[in-house]
Design a binder for these strands. Structure first.
Lengths: 275, 275
DNA sequence: CAAATAGTGTCTCTAAGACAATATCAC
DNA sequence: GTGATATTGTCTTAGAGACACTATTTG
């Protein structure tokens, strides 16, 4: 039957209204922060890339980087392209956290957005990101329970502090959704996107295999622990952590050196053999 | 500054090309199947709703129900509407499993689709679903590892058996993605959508809170166990299962009766107190 | 040697799995 | 009583958390 060919040639998508589609990136960075004392270890922190809006709408507010889906690319390719443009670093992996499609989420018109989480390790020093005229900046992230069951998102960068309040409403199938109670200085519905991103990142960061992607090939167990602690915002006993992670890593014969204390053995991720 | 108002009035979304957006529903049903013997319990099975395509393209193939996103609605509302239209049952909860956006996934043009999983319990007897002229049918689901690391999806409904082969390629952030090795008689990229749906459903079905949504208000512990076993395709020891679930349920003073064996106590889900 | 981190040993407690045994109904 | 499922009890083992202790480097 060659009807099919004819059918497709004559097929017309019609002039139904169609939305513009974008990909927004919730780009996290794990940064080590030096603390004066030469022998004290750097502390690992989680920070988030935001861009200050110069134009309308939400002029002067801070927004997630993102951009429009072009014909011929997948939404993942679009997200990858945008993330790379903004951070000058190719993300190792992207996790979709859903399509945000409230009809009025963007005052400019019908624009729906698929949001992605990307995490880059402290290794991938993004020198060129956030440097252009100060309109892109990395914010320290704090996301904690607040009053009456709300969650408070605090983003700080030097003098600037953004504070948003969201509420976790449904947790269908283990994936939380949030509604905005106070957007603060965050543009659009980005407060709820960030909240969902953090919630998704935290639940996946319990899996060591996920964490490995945020570290260089060789790492110390303390570094590994710091990364997990920074993301989950928890604190663990080194002894217990080491036992837990033992099955996922293998030793190398290299050590760190130069710090003012006992050197640490470097490990690498243990790859499962192909069955 | 009332520039913003002016700006928005003059804003033009431009004539960039935009995709059509659809929601596809991976609608599962938990059905009990009688087995002749009056005293033997019914067995719980997982089945999936598919629709036989009458028109081009993929004429004669089986496809997931779905439909276009309309202006003024969210993608969740769209999914809910489509699911209700097809199954005559309002789904209790929907889980998004991602946006499928391969440019050539639909031969008719640039059509991207957000897929959702929906599960209805054996309670919500969908009498009217799958009855219209036999072009919608519930298929028994089997999804198991096959040769060289592939996964085999077998869907059967009476005489009809569909068989697709997929391969789990990346598992970034714990969420698997699949590529199609053999679509069988499944239309479009629906084989990979179904695979991802099953994989997502299985990982969330380890959580009892999720399972409760698939059962009536009052249930026996064996029913609860059967549902989890049907979804995860596993088999557990009743004694161990009961201990595990004990903290999530509370007793009622009602019992089942009429079966050819010892009656079972009915339980209900234990709701957490509001803190 | 002192400061700081790296790494080990051991105890307890909990949860999961295996398996055996008892309870109760419809016919 | 018989066949079927419901329900309980116990043993073992694996893993997480708490905590105290030892090891090694640089200045």
């Amino acid at each position: 039957m060659s009807d099919e060919k004819t059918f497709l040639q004559q097929y017309d998508q019609g002039d139904y209204e169609r939305p513009s589609v974008t990909a927004d990136i919730v780009a996290f960075k794990l940064s080590g922060e030096d603390s004066g004392n030469y022998r004290r270890n750097v502390q690992t922190k989680l920070s988030l890339l935001l861009i200050k809006r110069n134009g309308h709408p939400y002029r002067g507010c801070w927004a997630l980087p993102g951009g429009f889906l072009n014909p011929g690319e997948t939404i993942e390719q679009c997200a990858l392209r945008e993330a790379e443009e903004e951070t000058a670093v190719k993300p190792v992996s992207l996790m979709s956290i859903g399509l945000f499609s409230e009809p009025n989420r963007d005052p400019r018109g019908w624009i729906i957005s698929n949001a992605f989480v990307s995490v880059m390790g402290a290794v991938d020093v993004p020198q060129h990101a956030g440097d252009d005229a100060g309109d892109a900046q990395w914010f320290d992230v704090l996301f904690e329970p607040g009053e009456n069951g709300d969650d408070v998102l605090t983003l700080s960068c030097g003098e600037i502090t953004l504070r948003a309040v969201v509420h976790e409403d449904s947790s269908a199938f283990g994936m939380s959704s949030f509604s905005i109670k106070d957007s603060g200085q965050l543009a659009f519905d980005h407060a709820k996107i960030i909240a969902k991103a953090l919630s998704a990142l935290r639940s996946s960061a319990r899996d060591f295999e996920v964490i490995f992607d945020f570290l260089p090939e060789k790492f110390t167990l303390t570094e590994l622990q710091n990364v997990q602690e920074a993301i989950l915002n928890i604190s663990l006993q080194p002894a217990n952590f080491r036992r837990k992670v033992a099955g996922y890593v293998e030793e190398t014969d290299e050590y760190t050196s130069g710090a003012g204390h006992r050197p640490a053995k470097l490990y690498k991720r243990k790859r499962e053999e192909v069955r």
